[in-house]
Write a protein that binds this DNA or RNA. Structure first.
Lengths: 232, 232
DNA sequence: ACGTGTGAACACATTCACAGCT
DNA sequence: AGCTGTGAATGTGTTCACACGT
């Protein structure tokens, strides 16, 4: 708590590590809520669902924030990971497509952990425009550029049908948004320098189906009576 | 169209490849809808947003389904990938948690591409139970085991709040479900042999924020006036 | 001539195992 | 004694570049 080795890590955290930092952060916040002050890599790893060597290697990319023989100070590590992920500043998010999914996203309490603020909700459907969702009123898609510029939107969320997604993405990019989260089942075409992440229900189901089929292949005929292996 | 080398690939398709097969499949179906009969790796790759070497390597894991000097027959490849992913059979899906997200999932037209059938919707909230969503009536969570067994559910989708997710997962597992798609922001604990995939909004946003911050670090001070690089 | 299929080179990620600090 | 931090070993994924079949 008093000794803080100022360690400005050397740029370049592996992608795989970045993808796990939010998981560690959530686990640490749960520990913090329970009043835990320090945690070992072994313990934190088990909460986060990874093995401890991986956890230590991941954290080592941020700097040397643990104490040998002791573990990591929870509060300090929460702060370091938050800072690394850019959560110490606020990010404005605009959501386009206020169907069931858009509403679900808008109502997603606390919007993850702090750090994200919903700056606007947009839709093309006149019967949705004007409605209030999550105490914001839904504006017409024509206002996309206005909203992006006036509210300083840096992350665009696309929750439209597949057919509209590319158009929305292009408008986001044109308006200066360089981070896009796409829920529509299409591959988006964006210029170099724009970061797109996708979330795709049907892809996830298909991957599950693939593995389920594999498991069934090995089995007797069908059935899958139970699995529940216990040991190890 | 006449010559079909019966090639029963040798088990063990890399995970990274499996995760891309659904993307190829969707691209191929789009081509099929437009009446395209054959496609080169170069063309298909550009639609799918990957490079052609990767595409060819991926497809080579399924067998030798292309023709040198020509390309791939669209219809045949659609069939082979579908079969590999297990989409030639139907999978029953149960969705637990019929809030905005659950409704969005239930209404997700065609449920991806064919191959998935919604067998049941479940919720704990008495004010939701009994309602009709996507022409199915929502049943009380107490019926989970009944639904799983009577409808032969093999994929469980969890769209509940974080606090209920582990309980639902355990009940799914106990009832014999070995594939779970989890939308709740928690790490699920399941026995060996159960396949869990997670979809997590706040993790995705945090990853985007990390990269956005990186980009901003290099820039002048803040602003991010525009990005839109054009060349290459 | 053309585009697939693939070995070989490279890049990235995970795991092991232990030296070194507390 | 205990637990981090990390080189070295291993495993997985991507890209290159070209031989080979059509």
């Amino acid at each position: 708590m008093t000794s803080r080795p100022p360690r400005p890590r050397e740029r370049g955290i592996p992608e795989a590590t970045v993808a796990r930092l939010p998981v560690y952060l959530r686990a640490l916040q749960a520990l913090q809520d329970r009043g835990t002050l320090t945690v070992s890599s072994e313990h934190l790893a088990s909460i986060a669902g990874v093995n401890s060597a991986k956890l230590r290697k991941d954290l080592s990319h941020l700097g040397s924030y643990g104490t040998r023989g002791v573990g990591y100070e929870v509060e300090y590590l929460v702060y370091q990971i938050s800072r690394e992920l850019g959560l110490t500043q606020d990010w404005s998010v605009a959501i386009v497509g206020i169907g069931n999914l858009g509403r679900a996203l808008a109502n997603y309490g606390g919007f993850g952990t702090r750090g994200f603020r919903i700056a606007g909700l947009l839709d093309a459907d006149p019967s949705v425009v004007g409605k209030t969702v999550a105490s914001l009123d839904v504006r017409h898609i024509d206002n996309l550029e206005d909203v992006v510029r006036s509210k300083g939107v840096s992350i665009g969320v696309i929750a439209t049908p597949a057919t509209s997604a590319q158009g929305v993405a292009s408008r986001f990019v044109e308006a200066g948004v360089t981070s896009i989260l796409n829920f529509a089942p299409v591959v988006l075409n964006v210029p170099e320098g724009v970061d797109v992440r996708k979330v795709d229900l049907s892809i996830e189901l298909q991957i599950l189906a693939f593995h389920a089929q594999r498991r069934a292949d090995g089995d007797s005929g069908r059935g899958v009576d139970r699995a529940g292996l216990e040991l190890t």
